[in-house]
């Protein structure tokens, strides 16, 4: 490996080191996610005023939008690690890509269901085949496809490579989801939170939304740590370090 990659990063790529690192990181990320999540819920459900048009129904936004962001963000992480896995054949990158898929699928499912619950009163329909909703459904199917393909092979690493290809091809859907509200006429509203330029939303509604965004990011790291740990144990079950862990846990 190239010399510009620091040694500690190189070491982190080894399964036993990453297993221990993820084990230390996991509880902190969970605690952070819970604390920030509770603060965001309090801000969103109690402190934020009702919307002047939508009343209290808009409060679905505090779970809907952060979940939608996570659905896209996790796809990005999955695609980048899938690329690394395909080019450099790093086992850990494969595992990170494959174990990101179920978390992304969970967030996308939440997005679709909460969106449906929101749409039924505001649009008068649970579902419509418009650009944003359809591309979001395609995102869910891409996640499910990656999970399915990964488990369809007898050889886990072969399955990971096939699924990594699918994940890379599917990245085309991410900008489609994001820009669908600008490119097509859709029932779904445009973005109100903007990175560039002023957001069209009151500050009392923005801060719970952004806090929940950070909370879901922490949750993702937590869930990824647990999943990667379990997967590494399964993949490396013939190795000594895994045997030591298995033996150690009987003693307890």
């Amino acid at each position: 490996m190239s010399s510009w990659i620091p040694l500690w990063l190189h070491k982190l790529g080894s399964p036993p080191t990453f297993y221990r690192f993820a084990g230390k990181l996991r509880p902190w990320m969970l605690a952070l996610a819970i604390v920030l999540g509770l603060v965001a819920l309090y801000g969103g459900l109690v402190l934020a005023p009702p919307d002047y048009q939508q009343g209290d129904d808009y409060r679905i936004i505090f779970v809907h939008v952060p979940s939608a962001w996570m659905g896209l963000f996790i796809y990005g992480v999955m695609a980048v690690s899938a690329f690394i896995a395909l080019v450099w054949r790093i086992k850990l990158a494969e595992v990170v890509a494959m174990e990101s898929a179920p978390i992304g699928a969970a967030f996308t499912l939440i997005t679709l269901i909460t969106g449906s619950l929101w749409g039924v009163r505001m649009w008068g329909t649970w579902w419509t085949w418009d650009a944003r909703l359809t591309s979001e459904l395609v995102l869910l199917f891409l996640y499910l496809g990656v999970i399915g393909l990964y488990h369809a092979f007898e050889d886990r690493r072969q399955g990971a490579r096939a699924a990594a290809f699918l994940a890379l091809i599917g990245i085309i859907n991410v900008p489609i989801v994001h820009f669908s509200v600008n490119w097509w006429n859709t029932l779904h509203q445009g973005a109100t939170i903007r990175l560039f330029g002023p957001s069209t939303m009151s500050g009392s509604m923005i801060w719970p939304l952004l806090t929940m965004m950070v909370a879901t990011k922490c949750y993702y790291v937590f869930s990824l740590c647990s999943r990667v740990r379990a997967d590494l144990l399964a993949l490396e079950s013939g190795k000594d370090w895994v045997r030591q862990i298995a033996a150690g846990e009987t003693a307890r």
Binding site: D56, D57, P102, I110, T114, W118, R227, A230
Partner: peptide, 26 residues
Amino acid sequence: MGGYAVYVWPAYAIFLVVLLADALAP
């Protein structure tokens, strides 16, 4: 929830239940 309880609370319940299942699985 200003008459929207049937929509708001299930949305939050789905969020919590799905993430709880996701956390327990590994």
